[in-house]
């Protein structure tokens, strides 16, 4: 049986866990805990999903042409605009 106290302690490690950043021992402990704790499994799954949503929604941005022109002008680099 898991204890609520364990959930609170593991919470600190979940971000490292989803990054694959933790020692094997702590990973095993989290995985064992999740087998018995549906709430923590949901937190881990929705945490991973949250991160992946931000990563996939951040496509490369093109600087708008007029912003780029104003930037080069402000830096006195107009002669390099069309290179």
């Amino acid at each position: 049986m898991h204890r609520h106290e364990d959930c609170r302690q593991l919470l600190n490690s979940l971000s490292g866990y989803v990054d694959g950043d933790l020692h094997q021992e702590l990973c095993d402990e989290i995985e064992l805990h999740m087998k018995d704790c549906e709430n923590c499994r949901i937190v881990v799954d929705t945490l991973s999903k949250t991160i992946s949503l931000y990563q996939t929604s951040s496509e490369p941005i093109k600087v708008p042409d007029e912003v780029r022109q104003r930037l080069f002008h402000r830096l006195d680099l107009d002669e390099f605009l069309n290179l």
Partner: peptide, 22 residues
């Protein structure tokens, strides 16, 4: 060297602009 600086501006402005937007 202004040409070298211009190429740095060109290469890195998208990431700086995105950081500002976010």
């Amino acid at each position: 060297d202004r040409a070298e600086f211009a190429s740095i501006v060109e290469a890195y402005s998208p990431m700086i602009y995105r950081l500002g937007l976010k």
